[in-house]
Simulated assay, not measured.
Amino acid sequence: MTRPKRGAVRFENVRKDFGGFTAIPDLTLDIEPGQLVTLLGPSGCGKTTTLRMLAGLESPTQGRILIGGEDVTRLPANRRDVSMVFQSYALFPHMSVADNVAYGLESGGMKRAEAHAAAENGLELVGLAGLGRRLPSELSGGQQQRVAVARALVLEPQVLLLDEPLSNLDARLRRRVRTEIRDLQQRLGFTAVYVTHDQEEALAVSDRIVVMKDGRIEQSGSPRELYDAPASEFIADFIGEANVMAAEVLSVNGTEADVSISGITVTVPARAARPGPSKVAARANAITVTPQSDAPFPGRVLSSAYLGDHVEYEIETASGPLFVLDSEGETPLPAGTSVAIGFRPRGLALIS
């Protein structure tokens, strides 16, 4: 097995209809070679349909799909030069790990000895050297996931597709395996398209995140760009659970803007803002609460929850309810406490 290829992907004005329902109205998207790009969004946003069209499991109603510069729009799945890792891993329980990894190669006509040599190489790439004789049931969930990745990689695809690959793992294992997938992708440099509805997962593994809504791209960018500079209220709430509040842009000075939020003035990135009414997205950890009965921006604790390294608050204010994460307070403020609302410098963004 050679090192994985690095194919570019392009969706060119792609539309997908299911009867009278349009799942993807008009999608144009470029994925650079060697990038891990995550399609993220709520259920029904079109991310899985997009992945299935790339895999050749669905045909677009119109438009073109290119892989490595080749138009594959009408090619069947087995001629797409892509491999897919499914939610369920789809390992054969009665076959050894090595047989599972070699299966696709043997099905394609490769001699058994050559296929198993490639399988052992693939298992070594994903850190499972020496485990080829075991059955899948003798491996942990994370190891089974890596077997599925090895099985896909030995086919030497231009693009690796991962469809909700961590959905069957518990929370702790999910964190570890997502790190392993990211480390593997960076080490080998293959192109990957990753589908998930989990925002934290997308932030952890991606070079670039494409957030979809109603079959359209709502925003695309690096994890930091989407978290620090959401383009809309939807993105602000979907990526990292932000509080959206009415604000007034007082002045713009180059790249910064002075903004009033319920009487408190803060400085935030200008993002082409103009003086006048606007909205600010405030991350939960960018809001401070201190006990105070008379404050410029008052609030009242509705509920609090101690979660070890931080306290979660629901705060009632004249601007609406706020969700706050306080990592500095050791003792939760009880419900009914009057508080003063403040803001930390990072975690505030103007949105349209």
Rank of each mutant, 00 (worst) to 15 (best):
R3A: 15
P4T: 10
A8S: 15
R10W: 13
R15K: 11
F21A: 04
I24W: 00
P25V: 02
L29P: 04
L36A: 09
T38D: 04
G41K: 01
G41V: 01
R52Y: 09
L54N: 10
G56C: 12
E58Y: 00
R64P: 07
I65D: 04
G69K: 15
R74V: 07
R74Y: 08
A77T: 15
A77F: 14
R80D: 10
D81M: 14
M84H: 12
V85E: 00
L91K: 04
A98G: 12
K111C: 13
R112F: 14
E114Y: 11
A118M: 08
A119C: 11
L135K: 13
P136M: 07
S137M: 09
V147W: 05
A148H: 01
V149M: 06
A152E: 02
L162P: 02
E164G: 08
L166N: 01
R172N: 08
R174M: 11
R175L: 13
V177G: 00
R187H: 15
V195K: 03
H197M: 05
Q199H: 11
D207V: 06
Q219E: 11
P230W: 02
E233C: 07
I235D: 03
D237R: 15
I239Q: 11
A246Q: 15
E256W: 14
E256T: 13
A257C: 12
I261E: 00
I264V: 14
T267P: 03
R271Q: 12
R274S: 12
G276V: 10
A286Y: 01
S293C: 07
D294H: 09
G299L: 12
S304F: 01
G308V: 02
G320W: 13
F323D: 08
A340G: 13
R346Q: 10
R346A: 08
A349M: 09
